[in-house]
Amino acid sequence: MSKHLNHIEPYSPQFGTMVPMGFQKFLRTCVLWQIVRFVAINIRMTILILKSHH
């Protein structure tokens, strides 16, 4: 699990933020989950566009 954090130096600017680890990175490239997210993002953007036209 710590392999995702190996490059972070203590008290560097990167030390003060969140860093994704294995499961989060897996979800980002999991095709099945991303198909679900693809639909969700498209719905979200469609609502945004509809709200924005006057």
């Binding site: 979800l27 980002r28 490239t29 095709v31 989950w33 991303q34 198909i35 997210r37 693809f38 969700a40 993002i41 498209n42 979200r44 953007m45 609502i47 945004l48 709200k51």
Partner: peptide, 14 residues
């Protein structure tokens, strides 16, 4: 409700 951000392949396809 309208302000979101996420990372992944799905955004890349978009």
């Amino acid at each position: 409700n309208g302000t979101t951000g996420e990372l992944g392949l799905a955004a890349h396809w978009i």
